[in-house]
């Protein structure tokens, strides 16, 4: 089974979160707990159900990732943007995700 993590949005603020290695919901993609078998996936699903029932998160789903020397990485642009935020400046100049720009 491919390497996967569990993600969702926080109920109160809508922020992107991941189920972390320390059994908490974290906004740090790199701290997400990875699983690569059905037992691990079942644990993540169970944790997500619990967190949904406790009004912590909404819309949980599993995401495939890859691991290299620098850690885990999302496989799609979409998950990369979810992990780091918009790739564009907004408002008074905030942004924190510098992906390559269109050319």
């Amino acid at each position: 089974m491919a390497l996967q993590i569990m993600t969702a949005n926080r109920l109160l603020g809508g922020e992107v979160v991941y189920f972390g290695e320390n059994a908490e919901w974290t906004d740090d993609f790199s701290a997400a707990k990875t699983v690569d078998d059905s037992n691990g996936a079942a644990v993540l699903l169970s944790e997500a159900e619990k967190a949904e029932a406790n009004q912590l998160i909404v819309g949980p789903y599993m995401v495939k990732v890859e691991r290299n020397q620098s850690g885990i990485h999302p496989l799609s642009v979409k998950e990369g943007i979810r992990a780091k935020g918009p790739t564009v400046h907004y408002g008074h100049g905030q942004n924190n995700n510098i992906l390559r720009q269109a050319g």
């Binding site: 949005n9 603020g13 809508g14 992107v16 819309g59 979409k78 979810r82 935020g85």
Partner: peptide, 9 residues
């Protein structure tokens, strides 16, 4: 009019 988008409501 309240949606849940990628990063926030």
């Amino acid at each position: 009019g309240l949606y849940l988008q990628l990063h926030a409501y």
